Simulated scan of single mutants.
Amino acid sequence: MEKKDIIARLKLLSDELGREIETTGSVVDLELRLREAEDEFAAINGDDGVHSEGGVSSQAAASMIHQTDLSSRERIKVKPLTCLHLKVFNPRGNLISKCVPPGEMVEIASGDFDHKKMIKGG
C-alpha cells in the first residue's frame, strides 16, 4: 500500500472511531497505526478482525477492547505526566488501549489511577 493510500484509510478510520489518528511518519509507522486502528474498529463493531491487506488480527489486539458497564463514579479524568500506554474510555464507553501523550485529558477506570504518573482532573 502506498503512503497516500494509508493516510487516506487512516483519515476514514479516524472519523469512524471518533478520534484523531496521527498521519505523519514513515510508511512503516503508518502501516502499524493502520493495523492498530483497523483492529480497534473491528473489535468495536464485532467484525472478524480481517485487515484490508488480508492479515488477521491477533487475539491480544482484539482483547484490548472491552465492553464495560462501569458507572461514571468509577471513571476519572486524568492527564499523564509522561507518555503512557493506558486503557482509556472512548466516546462509545468502551475501554481501548491507547498511547497517551503528556497533558492529554483522558478518562480511565478509577482503579487504574497512579498518582506518580498522572494527575486527576487536569
Rank of each mutant, 00 (worst) to 15 (best):
D69Y: 00
I6P: 02
S14I: 04
M64L: 05
S97M: 15
L86V: 02
L86H: 02
G111A: 09
L13M: 13
A37G: 06
G54C: 02
S52N: 10
L10T: 10
A62F: 15
A60V: 06
H66R: 08
V100W: 07
N94A: 07
D5E: 11
A61R: 03
V56G: 10
L34G: 01
H85F: 05
D29T: 10
N90K: 08
R33Y: 05
A62S: 06
V28K: 12
T82R: 06
D48E: 10
K11I: 05
H115L: 12
G93L: 06
C99Q: 13
E74M: 07
L17N: 06
D69Q: 01
N94L: 08
R19I: 05
L13H: 15
G49W: 02
Q59K: 11
L81W: 00
I65F: 00
N94R: 09
S14Q: 03
K3I: 14
P91C: 10
V106Q: 06
K120F: 05
L84F: 01
G46L: 05
N45L: 09
K98P: 03
N94V: 13
K117V: 12
T82N: 03
R73A: 00
A60I: 07
E31N: 05
T82F: 04
P91Y: 10
S52V: 01
G25K: 07
E40K: 11
S26V: 09
P101Y: 08
L12M: 13
R35K: 15
L13W: 14
K120Y: 13
R33I: 10
G49K: 02
K4C: 03
S71M: 02
T23R: 06
D5F: 14
L81M: 00
A60K: 13
K77N: 09
A42S: 15
T23L: 05
S63H: 13
I96A: 04
V28R: 08
G49C: 11
S26L: 08
F41G: 10
K11Y: 15
L95Q: 11
I108L: 14
S63I: 02
G46V: 14
G18L: 09
L13G: 09
R75F: 07
K11G: 12
I21N: 14
I6L: 12
K116T: 15
I108Q: 10
D29R: 13
S110G: 13
I7D: 00
R92Q: 12
N94E: 14
G54T: 00
G25R: 11
C83A: 12
C99N: 08
L70R: 00
K98S: 07
G25H: 11
N45A: 00
I119H: 03
E107N: 12
A42E: 15
